[in-house]
Design a protein around this nucleic acid. Structure first.
Lengths: 202, 202
DNA sequence: GCCTAGTTACACAGGTCTGTGTACCCATTT
DNA sequence: AAATGGGTACACAGACCTGTGTAACTAGGC
């Protein structure tokens, strides 16, 4: 008996809707009734697929934890491209910060939530670290942490300010940090050029 | 008729308690009953001092918005001292991130909350900018934004990781950015020295 | 035609939340 | 002694929340 092929549509629909509402309005702010009503199903059906709201929350966070796909671009392009991609996401009106940080902020001391949030942050830091190692940077660990700080800083700032320029500011800071670590970075923006000429003049 | 001199104790007690519980457990997670019970007063008394929970939330955020006090230290010490002070706060077990970011995260599209959060973030950025101007840094605006990113990034990272070292990482990144802008920074830590010697070797 | 699995409608239990209404108490002032 | 202001005790309205129980419906596979 092949495991029913086209059947798990409902569970996905529930999860997709929960994801959207949790992320946009907050986890505590969205009730299961609201999710069911949004899809047009009965609350009973929802509870037939997820045993509790907690299970739905866990599935939501697990779904947000997507592993970064491999890329054929150069390590430097991948690192700086992270900030370009952030800027695009900031410009989207539905961007509301990091779902993991938000979940920790509103669910407080919940152990499992914190655990997945830490795992997510660490996975991004490790991706930076690996790229830096490829570039031959000596202290890749410390620099990767600093790049991760810039990512989360720009996300937090955009969450309150709704200003995609925060991603560009982070990218410029990241460029300075990379150059300081001996990485050759091409494609310098006007702002960066101004910064460097200023430095020469000093 | 002098306005009752020693009387506003109760209102302050309510606000102090609300502040503590809101910050530690989240605003939505704490009910007015809980706050009243914690102080040992009746819920009626609480509502005699604040017309609604929303008013209490506003007062909580206003109370957190403390203007930075003047300092006699040098601008560089003030800027880098920000990160030392962050590290101390991270080490305290009751640190739970930035109250404004957390409030925006859990209250979502609330206009007034977003407004005060933006004002707070901007006030810190302007403080950095003024200090950088005192240092004669040319592009103080952009650098101040970058320093603010490091602050918020380390706060977000510590919120999920509970790792005060995030503040030190931010400080090292800030040091690099300052030096890159032509600022003379003394007192270099071991990590920074290593970073510079590595750079020379490249 | 029949069986089964998924879905539905709907009521309800039991809890929490914000906010109000009411009557009383007690201390200080006048 | 009387009045006033602040606090207390307590019930309650009305909303919303999570989660369950139950009986009926419906579509596809046999």
């Amino acid at each position: 008996m092949a495991p029913l092929p086209a059947k798990p549509a409902m569970k996905d629909r529930i999860l997709e809707t929960a994801d959207r509402l949790f992320y946009l309005q907050g986890i505590r702010a969205v009730g299961v009734d609201t999710i069911a009503a949004e899809i047009g199903i009965s609350k009973r059906t929802l509870y037939n697929h997820f045993p509790s709201k907690d299970a739905l929350i866990s599935a939501y966070l697990a779904r947000r934890f997507v592993a970064p796909r491999a890329s054929d671009k150069s390590p430097v392009e991948q690192i700086l491209g992270t900030f370009d991609s952030l800027e695009r996401r900031f410009s989207h009106k539905d961007f509301r910060g990091c779902p993991f940080v938000n979940a920790v902020a509103e669910l407080g001391e919940d152990r499992s939530v914190r655990k997945v949030a830490v795992a997510f942050k660490e996975s991004r830091r490790l991706r930076f670290r690996d790229l830096l190692v490829q570039l031959g940077v000596a202290n890749a660990e410390a620099l990767a942490t600093q790049l991760a700080l810039l990512v989360d800083g720009s996300i937090a700032q955009d969450l309150v300010r709704n200003d995609p320029a925060m991603a560009r500011a982070a990218k410029e800071a990241a460029t300075v940090l990379l150059r300081n670590a001996g990485v050759k970075v091409g494609e310098s923006s006007a702002a960066e050029k101004a910064q460097r000429s200023r430095k020469r003049a000093t």
